[in-house]
Design a protein around this nucleic acid. Structure first.
Lengths: 141, 141
DNA sequence: TTACGTGCAAAAGGTTTGCAATAAC
DNA sequence: GTTATTGCAAACCTTTTGCACGTAA
């Protein structure tokens, strides 16, 4: 069975190797935002002939092809997730636990675009992450 | 003459050394978003008894004290700027030139806070960077 | 077949840290 | 005088890369 991500890669003219197929599958099945080490771990379970250098090369390739999105959540390594058909979302990070929660806001999407255009730019990407603590929690920082 | 940043550090109970004063001065005078190498370069012009390790230690200290803000603009190193009294701004990066342009939007400030609270969090920080190309420019990516 | 992808290990680039010397309070 | 800070160099961690080998089309 061919994953949606693999299809997207083929559309982009990316030559599919066994390693790339495996990494595509990892992201097709992921519901979170794994870093490269974690992708390597999961890929190795499916096929142990994969090296971490290939994972690095592949996530970069997929990112440049618009198949994956890279995130920086201030923990020192890049995290990746697939770009889904149903539009993108942003993230809120619970700084107490590190948990990453997705959200989507049409209003923010609109304003971002408006601001960029008002400044004379066409928006081609963005980074938005909110960092918060649970409202119930009383710790000051 | 004592800089505003130095005053802020003293308020936070930070012990001021000559090196820290020099680094505070660099940020007091900066109108941009220097990385550590650049801070080190500017600080060295004012006082050549400074090491880059101290710059790393000091920007971290200042960041934790709420005196500096750290940014990641996808170029592989951290950039810093002072937190000014007149409220914060966000950034738009011209991906053709790397130029960083500041902007401020009360509407975005409001929505960010609303979203976090609606999700059950008190917002304590955020990252927002827009990446764009000049509207005049016709390149596709 | 032929260009492209891979694994390995080494290197790069940014950042942190152990330690002995130094300076602040 | 005591404790924190500094400079130096080594270590760290993530990511990239050179090269010989392997593989997809």
């Amino acid at each position: 069975m061919i994953t949606n991500i693999e299809k997207r890669c083929l559309d982009q003219g990316i030559k599919m190797t066994e390693q790339r197929r495996v990494i595509a599958r990892v992201f097709a099945e992921a519901k979170d935002h794994p870093d490269v080490e974690e992708v390597y771990r999961r890929a190795s379970l499916l096929d142990d002939r994969i090296s971490i250098a290939t994972v690095y090369r592949t996530v970069r390739l997929f990112e440049e092809a618009g198949v994956l999105e890279r995130h920086d959540f201030r923990d020192g390594r890049a995290r990746y997730e697939k770009i889904s058909d149903e539009g993108q979302h942003d993230h809120l990070i619970d700084v107490k636990t590190g948990k990453i929660i997705e959200f989507q806001s049409d209003e923010i999407d609109r304003i971002r675009k408006e601001i960029a255009e008002k400044m004379g730019f066409r928006l081609i990407g963005h980074t938005l992450a909110l960092y918060g603590v649970p409202l119930a929690s009383k710790e000051s920082e």
